[in-house]
Amino acid sequence: MKIVLFLGLLALGYFAGTAAEKKHFKSISEREAASIALPVLSVSKLPENLVATESALVTGSAVISIDYFKRILASLINIVGGKVISYESLVDRARREAILRMKESAGHYDYIINLRIETSVIGNSANQKNGVGSVEVVAFGTAVKVKSDANQI
């Protein structure tokens, strides 16, 4: 009985999880293409020729959880060591989603400077198996508006 439940969860995790992940990645790339006009920089100062007129703090965050199949896979990889692909896509999804949300909240601004990304593990209680359950990523930066008559780079 237990093994049936386990295999059932494994299959559900694999099929539903993979489908959801594909859909999410598709949505991420579409939105990334749509918001390409708003550059995000990790430097703290704009080039001299751009004069800032307005600034505001913008943030975006996302909590993404891993599926059952990948969690089991990761715990197996943990034994032999090596590249844990299942977690790579998890943090990648979370980071890109957080950055996109930050960009989407920046509205009429021209640039986002001083981007910082913080990642933290949450929700240990939500998974009984050891290891990472879900990650929270918060992306934050300063949105600035530049003088419209300034020279373009």
């Binding site: 539903a16 959801a20 992940e21 965050s61 929270e136």
Partner: peptide, 30 residues
């Protein structure tokens, strides 16, 4: 997190994906 959200998150943990309840909670707290 309150128990209801935790149970929902536990279920969501099987199929993976975003835990909206947690995202909102953390945003509010921040």
């Amino acid at each position: 997190k309150h128990v209801g959200k935790d149970i929902m998150a536990g279920l969501k943990n099987i199929v993976g994906g975003e835990l909206k309840g947690y995202t909102e909670l953390l945003q509010e707290s921040r």
